[in-house]
Design a protein around this nucleic acid. Structure first.
Lengths: 140, 140
DNA sequence: GATAAGGCTTCCAGTTACTGGAGGGTCAAT
DNA sequence: ATTGACCCTCCAGTAACTGGAAGCCTTATC
């Protein structure tokens, strides 16, 4: 297989596939003319990585998962640990984003959104700057 | 004010403040010795940006918001448009992440997480590679 | 005056995971 | 011989910082 076929079948841009080779996720063979020649196994690895990436695993996670995947004797606990750690990360980010969303939605609702210059969004962004003249400054 | 005081009061690392100057978000004065000399207005701008960033606005959003903030005659609708656009983005990302979270949580639950090598997580990641021998290939 | 600690400066490189483009070889068909 | 579609490598750029090196400036102490 040439790169464009793999690209299509794995659902990854050719650029990305070359990049994955560069960082050592795959090592496709080469033809005499220098073209990459992909095996079904290469395609399989790429599809695996693509799927893991779409679940938000980092490249380094993917590297670990690939290793585990190809280690016939690994314990499923190892895989689970990576996935569970990732899940925790996602949950944290979700919580942050929901907090952000809430604040922002409140602001958008509070804003008239008309031609007048008064805008609670800007007012809020500008709000709380600590005062240097007093409080909490360690005096020298 | 020197940079470290501003850093503390705005809640941004000095490195970040220098970076914000580099990209033109602020233009603090300089002392004879080359040190940056920050005004209260500079501090204010930085705090504004810090707050907007923590709400997930991009640097370019911040640039626009700052301009609007300092334009006494702007319409609140302009600000609202930026914020609302950002809110839509956040909602999209939230939906994606929730989808991701769901799939991942299902996988983690399905995985025994013991010493046995069988792992539904890996099985799922490996699963669906299209077959090139048939279906959906536009023949030439 | 020497010295040391801390703060300030600039500049360069690295991070993540690609993406775009230039410049140029290869292949199949006309 | 010449398209046009592939393929190659290498370089640069993205977002938004972060870390580190090398080197002034300031202040305090001995």
């Amino acid at each position: 297989m040439n790169i464009s076929e793999v690209s299509q079948r794995a659902g990854l841009p050719s650029k990305t596939i070359r990049y994955y080779e560069e960082i050592g996720l795959i090592q496709p063979a080469r033809r005499a003319n220098g073209y990459r020649q992909f095996s079904e196994a290469d395609l399989h690895r790429l599809a695996f990585v693509g799927r893991a990436r779409s679940l938000g695993f980092s490249i380094e996670d993917c590297r670990s998962l690939l290793t585990l995947y190809e280690d016939r004797g690994r314990a499923s606990a190892d895989v689970r640990a990576i996935a569970a750690g990732h899940l925790r990360l996602i949950d944290e980010r979700l919580a942050e984003m929901q907090q952000m969303r809430q604040t922002l939605a409140d602001l958008v609702n509070a804003c008239a959104g008309d031609a007048r210059p008064d805008c609670p969004i800007l007012a809020d962004l500008a709000a709380p700057v600590a005062d240097s003249t007093a409080e909490d400054q360690t005096p020298k």
